[in-house]
Amino acid sequence: MSGSVFTGYTGGLIWGLGGGLVIAIATLFGVWWERKVAGRIQMRLGPQTTGPFGLLQTVADMVKLLLKEDITPTQADAPVFRVAPLIVFVPIAMAVTVIPFAAGWAPLDTSVGMLFFLAVPSVSVIGILMAGWSSGNSYATLGGLRGAAQMISYELPRTLSVLSVVLLAGSLRPVEVMEAWRWWFIPLNGIGFLVYFISSVAECNRGPFDIPEAESELVAGYFADYSGIRWAIFMMSEYGGVIAASLFGAALFLGGWAWAPGLFGTAIFLLLTVVLVTAMIWIKWTFPRMRMDQLMNTAWKVLTPMALLQIAIIGVVIAWL
């Protein structure tokens, strides 16, 4: 059997480790940005004393969390409880590797990249269920159950919305999708992008879809019993999910680097990503939390038909392209 198959994957592994590190650092600033934006929305200033504009606040928080005691509850199933945060985080960091950051370049350039981006983060549902179940706590178990139901439901409209991009570009390789991208994909694929964006917010378990961790009903849901660094990994995976979803949306729906040549294009791509991240934060701090049945109805009765409609529209239009 040929060795060439694996060289791509060894490369991907190295990029994956680097990507995990980058994502970990990016989430630190993501948290800072969220606190700043949330502060502004609530007529506050947000963090401002640690470093310029409070930039080092989350770094300081990280150090604090690292020094905190790492508690495993006596009721918990210890090995499963300990490994669960990593199973939530690693797939999300892996998913970032297929995103095309510059013309013709993605860290892991694979012919099934679009599917990879959707498939790999779905593994983190397992981590959420493991965390919920192994805590040996009813709140955590309920949170885990809710999280799994929600993430499985929203995977469907999310996949269908990405499918419309795949149809338009005629490829599953993200780099080729970006090369096929034209500006009029945005209006043509508007419904698809909306569905992608909403279901991505839900996939990250963020408000208004944060019922798996609803503080007022479930304490903190599936990670109620976590403390210290393991709790921090859960928070990092939430922000990592937001950043990954925004990167992917900015690249494949909004054009990313296709707007301008060279490094300038990558800068526009990152700017679009920041806009999407900000929009997600804005949504979280503006809308009230949904009820479980409303959440399920949105996924199955609104978003899925919308995504199917989008695919039908593109199926008709593509005949004239």
Partner: peptide
């Protein structure tokens, strides 16, 4: 990729769900 998507993200979650 389909195996990861359908099985690990789908069937295994259903199994865990049923267990819970």
């Amino acid at each position: 990729a389909a195996q990861v998507f359908v099985y690990v993200g789908g069937v295994l979650v259903l199994v865990l769900f049923a267990i819970m």
